[in-house]
């Protein structure tokens, strides 16, 4: 039983060691960000499942040791069980202490941002909150009551279809649970300080959630509107990342769009 547990830990270590290299071969992850995100988190949760299996096997082995078990085996099984529990306790403590500031920050920012809204409009799956600002800002706040925040400057800078594409990008973050993915990657990085494994997942997640949300918005509203919105905002702000995201959209093949304005949400936003 102890050997099986050790084998599980070895497999988890192999996944953690090789996954970052395998995932970043070529540019497939940039062309298919959602698949890449699923692969990264599939590897992460597989590694976690193997660690949990190793814990259960080692504790089970320690509990099942009886009088008839040879002395050396009994000592090893008991020791393995206690070591596993100690490691699990240390990990649990680290996860909780790493998660606490992130969760507290989420509550604080949601409360602060909700208090400065100039208007709120309910749509299916989220609340659209507008606020006054001379900066072009849009972002999604996940949670029990998900919201998309849009600044007045952002609304002024873009045409209605471009604005719709920005909202679709933010809505994709909410629908695809990107907030949870970013949170898990951040806590994982905090638990593995200085290790490439933690940093790789965190970095990949930050990039891939943006590209996956771009793809979802391009399919929903039309790549041309999102690309034009990105180019306009890149020009106004000097943020080169948006120009590069637009270049990426322009280089991909997109299915023919059936025309925007069919959904209630789209009609309401386009009517502005």
């Amino acid at each position: 039983m102890l050997l099986t547990a050790l084998a599980c830990v070895a497999c988890a270590a192999l996944i953690a060691y090789f996954a970052p290299s395998l995932m970043t071969v070529g540019r497939w992850q940039l062309l298919h960000p959602r698949t890449a995100l699923a692969a990264w988190f599939g590897a992460f949760f597989l590694g976690m499942a193997l660690c949990v299996a190793a814990l259960m096997l080692s504790v089970g082995g320690a509990v099942s040791a009886s009088v008839s078990t040879p002395v050396l085996d009994a000592i090893l099984l008991t020791l393995g069980g206690w070591v596993s529990l100690a490691l699990f306790g240390a990990l649990a403590f680290f996860v909780v202490s790493s998660a606490a500031p992130v969760v507290a920050s989420e509550r604080m920012s949601s409360a602060t941002l909700a208090s400065v809204a100039t208007s709120r409009e309910e749509f299916a799956g989220y609340t659209l909150v507008r606020f006054d600002s001379s900066d072009e800002i849009a972002y999604a706040v996940p949670g029990r009551r998900p919201a998309i925040f849009l600044s007045s400057a952002m609304e002024r800078a873009l045409t209605p279809p471009q604005l719709l594409a920005v909202v679709a990008h933010e809505y994709a973050h909410l629908r695809q649970h990107h907030g949870f993915a970013v949170l898990v990657a951040k806590i994982n990085a905090a638990c593995l300080p200085g290790l490439n494994q933690g940093r790789s997942l965190n970095r990949a997640t930050t990039l891939l959630v943006e590209l996956a949300a771009d793809d979802a918005a391009a399919r929903q509203v039309g790549a041309v509107f999102l690309a034009n919105a990105l180019v306009t905002l890149a020009r106004n702000s000097g943020d080169q990342s948006m120009q590069l995201r637009a270049d990426r959209l322009a280089g991909k093949q997109w299915p023919r769009r059936r025309g925007i304005g069919r959904h209630d949400t789209e009609r309401k936003l386009l009517a502005r």
Binding site: S110, H173, G179, D239
Partner: peptide, 21 residues
Amino acid sequence: DRRAALLAFAGNLNDEDLDLL
């Protein structure tokens, strides 16, 4: 840390991401 709570439309990518793109 707030990045975990707020998924902003811009400003999330670092220099390494830009080089890759």
